[in-house]
């Protein structure tokens, strides 16, 4: 494969751009990075705690880019390789997600388990967790920063379920904090 940009000097740069010229005839429609975050308010809790169950699907190819999951570098990510890196995946992911219920009502995230989920563009790690806040409040704020620092085109697609109601939102660097209303 030609790496045009490696060529020195103005012409090298031009050649890189010339390859760009070839593209517009053909759409660039290929999947960018998405993650799917589904939150379900637990309405069965008898205690005063506020609990939200979460499922967070993160593309294995995205996780591989930041965490180098493909240990043998053969380009084929096996369950064994993913399995061995589950702790690192969890650590990385939960650094980029937080919930808070306002002053004095921090919420903690308790990872539950990890499975694999299939999407039309490939396999995702499915991270299940509970978010537990000290007090039930009408409003929780979700802070989401997954991958934004390395790929500002990443989007988190959020679905919040509360009983029969569901609402959706698109999480992006410009929209990284969202109020969840009960």
């Amino acid at each position: 494969m030609t790496r045009c940009a490696r060529r020195a000097g103005l012409f090298g740069l031009l050649v890189a751009a010339l390859n760009c010229l070839a593209v517009p005839e053909n759409a660039a429609a290929h999947s960018a990075s998405d993650a799917y975050l589904t939150l379900t308010a637990d309405r069965s809790e008898a205690s005063s705690l506020s609990v939200i169950h979460g499922q967070w699907d993160i593309a294995l190819r995205d996780l591989d880019f930041v965490l180098k999951l493909d240990d043998d570098g053969d380009g084929r990510l096996t369950w064994g390789e993913v399995h061995r890196h589950q702790a690192a995946i969890e650590r990385y992911a939960y650094q980029h997600l937080a919930l808070d219920g306002g002053p004095g009502n921090a919420c903690s995230i308790k990872p539950r388990r990890q499975l694999i989920d299939g999407h039309a563009d490939g396999a995702y790690a499915a991270l299940f967790f509970d978010a537990i806040c000290a007090r039930a409040t009408r409003k929780l704020t979700l802070h989401y920063t997954l991958f934004f620092a390395i790929d500002p085109s990443h989007r988190g697609i959020l679905v919040m379920r509360n009983g029969a109601a569901a609402s959706t939102a698109l999480l992006s660097p410009q929209n990284a904090a969202i109020d969840l209303l009960r």
Binding site: G73, R76, L77, W79
Partner: peptide, 19 residues
């Protein structure tokens, strides 16, 4: 979501460092 059966199950193609 599911739990793959075997450690050798291939889940995803990623860029190979052989490239």
């Amino acid at each position: 979501p599911y739990l793959p059966v075997s450690e050798s199950d291939i889940l995803q193609d990623v860029p190979s460092t052989a490239d």
